[in-house]
């Protein structure tokens, strides 16, 4: 089996990086809204309750993508090194 050229690996890594930025961007946005509601005393408990669901879900999605990415790519690298 022919190995993927280096540029393909770079693009794949860039894709994973962008997805990670997206997930942390969403989490950062949610945290910012909690801070805002806290500062304005604008029922922060509601914001915290929603973030308790949304943030773990996004982290789980990031985890699944990383698991697949490194699981599949790792298997190729392991096979090639053997």
């Amino acid at each position: 089996m022919q190995r993927d050229p280096r540029w393909v690996l770079y693009v794949q890594n860039a894709g994973l990086f962008l997805f990670t930025v997206f997930v942390f961007g969403v989490i950062g946005w949610i945290i910012r809204l909690i801070r805002l509601s806290w500062t304005l005393d604008d029922s922060p408990s509601g914001s915290i309750a929603i973030s308790l669901i949304a943030i773990p879900v996004f982290l789980l999605l990031l985890g699944v993508v990383n698991y697949v990415f490194w699981g599949i790519r790792g298997a190729v690298e392991k096979e090639d090194s053997q």
């Binding site: 879900v57 789980l60 698991y67 697949v68 990415f69 599949i72 298997a75």
Partner: peptide, 28 residues
């Protein structure tokens, strides 16, 4: 296709990883 395939070769390890991830996502 080369970029999206992530170097897929259909090895046992890759299959296991993918099946597990699909099962997690189906539940999520």
């Amino acid at each position: 296709y080369r970029i999206l395939a992530l170097g897929w070769r259909g090895t046992e390890r890759q299959e296991k990883v993918l099946q597990r991830a699909i099962a997690i996502m189906a539940i999520v």
